[in-house]
Design a protein around this nucleic acid. Structure first.
Length: 494
RNA sequence: GGCGGCAUAGCCAAGUGGUAAGGCAGAGGACUGCAAAUCCUUUAUCCCCCGGUUCGAAUCCGGGUGCCGCCUCCA
């Protein structure tokens, strides 16, 4: 493994590409801001989590080891959310059925894990639950108290941001401008010394399910101290990478960073990565606009009807853009990406069937692919190398080896394993019989009979393809609903 | 108002000083009963506009214009 091949990443603090220099190459440490589990994750969330997956897979591809933590915020403000989203059917249904917030969190945590598996994400090494880290959060606040960075009364504790060295470096926020993050209402604002200060602990209102005893009374922790405490609990300070969506840059990441800096005098993370947002038809996703898509919505196809798309197809779509480029999801764009992926798979499948060839060319292709990944995870470039490779004349074992190797990062079902070629699945006997019948009719010159048989086969979700030499073969129709088996991207063990 | 980002062919999108990757769509050809698939060829003298720096800029600097995000929960 060429260890001089440094991975360049764009850091949000220095605002430039910097080489990753991990303290321990065998254990690159990564923290990702995970979901608040009161609803299904949408494709925008998944795009951000995909950044972590591509990062981990690239690191492993380059020969590094990884240790990853992704938090689960399972003690959110259910009451407030319910008010804001009043019509949330699942929460409403759960409450109507007498379910607790804890049960809701458990349900959506499982749903989140399932979506991660469907997307082909490698599981994190640890998934810290906020509700299980309150002692750590309290300890962090006490530590901050000792440093004199905390003030407040009546059960409310606030963090004094002037006690955080380098506050504002991440977001560019300057003290005295803008308005702060605050989980409490306007009354809370009056308790604070300056707008940027934020709450560390709050008293529990009547009926709040999640609440804990603390030195400051019974209550619950502020948002920013959750992540800071969980990250430090599992990765310490100065871990290698922190990943999240751009919207978290301020105030959440700025404030998490400030807490760690004030408490320990150290940087929370060495490199901060931010994934740009995914818009739908040029607009931010929102429940009220009905464009907050999930993987199930993708599987169902466009609202007006049409082909549905698999998680692998969405994954490929995401990889046609750099992670820091805002992505505008459209059904047309998804269709174009799907077609590109289908052709890429087909090209590799054909290459694998040819005689082995092109081992010299493969070396250069490998280098181009590796260089693309190493340059700030440039997946669009990596995909262009894959397309070039599939049509470069390589064949046989050489083609299979490249597909298998690259699919460890791409994970879109490139046919790399011998015998795992796409399209090799069993065709039901009934359909095979229809195909033979059609073939006979066709050879006899009875084309109208042949065409009607083809229509029947298509209605059953398969398609018959006549190859050049008069041979015909079967495959699942591209317009058939996406099955779980088709992609050859079954769930990774977790 | 403050902060951050983006403007590249019909569409999506790489490219951060050396003369425009790749994908989708389109066009021509091969193959085909038809169709699909596949294969080959082809598609930006030019990178939002105006200045500047440079032997040389899509790439750097200054000034515009437009779009988006964050500053309230947000991936």
């Amino acid at each position: 493994m060429d260890s001089q091949a440094a991975l360049l990443l764009r850091d949000s603090v220095s605002r430039r590409k910097v080489p990753l220099v991990p303290a321990d190459p065998a254990r690159v440490t990564i923290y990702t801001c995970g979901p608040t589990v009161y609803r299904y994750v949408h494709i925008g969330n998944l795009r951000t989590y995909l950044l972590t997956d591509l990062l981990v897979r690239t690191l492993r591809f380059l020969g590094y080891g990884t240790y990853t933590a992704q938090n689960i915020t399972d003690m959110g403000h259910m009451h407030q959310e319910q008010l804001e989203l009043g019509e949330d059917k699942v929460i409403a249904a759960a409450r109507a059925a007498g379910r607790t917030a804890r049960e809701i969190a458990a349900f959506f945590t499982e749903a989140f894990f399932r979506d991660c598996r469907r997307m082909g994400f490698l599981p994190a090494d640890v998934y810290p639950r906020a509700s299980e880290h309150v002692p750590e959060m309290i300890a962090l606040v006490r530590r901050l108290e000792e440093k004199g960075a905390v003030y407040g009364r009546d059960g409310y504790l606030y963090f004094d941001v002037t006690r955080a060295p380098g506050y504002g470096a991440l977001s560019g926020a300057a003290l005295g401008e803008g308005t702060p993050a605050e989980r409490t209402g306007a009354e809370g604002q009056r308790r604070k010394r300056r707008p940027e200060d934020f709450v560390l602990w709050m008293p529990a209102e009547p009926g709040r399910e999640f609440q804990w005893d603390s030195p400051w009374g019974r209550g619950w922790p502020g948002w920013h101290s959750e992540c800071a405490a969980m990250a430090m609990a599992h990765l310490g300070t100065g871990y290698d990478l922190n990943v999240g969506g751009v919207d978290l840059r301020f105030p959440h990441h700025e404030n998490s960073r400030a807490l760690a800096a004030a408490a320990t005098g150290k940087e929370l993370a060495r490199i901060w990565l931010h994934a740009a947002h995914l818009l739908v038809d040029g607009r931010k996703m929102s429940k009220s606009q009905g464009n907050e898509y999930t993987l199930d919505d993708l599987a169902g196809g466009p609202p007006g009807g049409g082909k549905g798309y698999s998680p692998a197809e969405f994954r490929y779509y995401c990889m046609t853009l750099h992670y820091a480029t805002p992505m505008n999801f459209t059904w047309e764009g998804q269709a174009a990406a799907s077609r590109g992926l289908a052709r890429l798979r087909e090209a590799f499948r054909k290459a694998a069937e040819r005689a082995t060839a092109g081992s010299d060319a493969a070396a250069a292709l490998r280098e181009r692919f590796r260089a693309a990944l190493s340059d700030d995870l440039n997946l669009p470039r990596a995909l262009s190398v894959a397309h070039d490779a599939a049509r470069s004349g390589i064949g046989g074992d050489v083609a299979r080896a490249l597909a298998a190797e690259w699919d460890r990062v791409l994970r879109v079902g490139l046919p790399g394993e011998p015998g795992a070629a796409a399209g090799a699945e069993e065709v039901p006997a009934e359909i095979a019989a229809l195909a033979r019948e059609r073939d006979a009719a066709r050879r006899a010159g009875d084309f109208s009979a042949a065409d009607s048989l083809r229509a029947r086969i298509r209605a059953l979700g398969y398609d018959v393809v006549d190859a050049g030499g008069g041979e015909s073969s079967m495959r699942k129709s591209p317009d058939a609903p996406e099955g779980t088996a088709k992609d050859g991207t079954g769930p990774e063990s977790r």
